[in-house]
């Protein structure tokens, strides 16, 4: 992205359209990644709730996808997935 000059930027250092952070990808921070087993998932949404990076996508109350463009691989989703379900497993990221 070409950085704007002072004549082009909005005055007051504001960010006029929110949110813009998705333009910045954080997926390359990851050293391990969650693998989601859809068949085991009971859609309790705890992983969605606790994912710090809004990388678990929910539609109509159901988990639909993990967004690896942003997932930082913290492993909280695996941790909060109910022990009897275990629908998420962290595996080493392959580079």
């Amino acid at each position: 992205m070409k950085k704007k000059g002072w004549k082009e930027l909005p005055e007051g250092a504001i960010i006029p359209a929110a949110p813009t952070s998705p333009e910045f990808k954080t997926g390359d921070w990851r050293i391990q990644k969650p693998v989601w087993n859809e068949d085991k998932c009971v859609h309790c949404l705890l992983c969605w709730l606790y994912c710090p990076d809004s990388a678990i996508k929910v539609k109509d109350g159901k988990v639909v996808a993990f967004d690896y463009e942003y997932c930082k691989g913290c492993g909280i989703c695996e941790q909060v997935c109910p022990p009897k379900i275990r629908a998420i497993e962290m595996v080493k990221e392959e580079i």
Partner: peptide, 14 residues
């Protein structure tokens, strides 16, 4: 939104 720079595992986004 995704793309913020909180440390991996930081709980305050939740």
């Amino acid at each position: 939104a995704s793309g913020h720079r909180a440390c991996a595992g930081c709980p305050f986004p939740a």
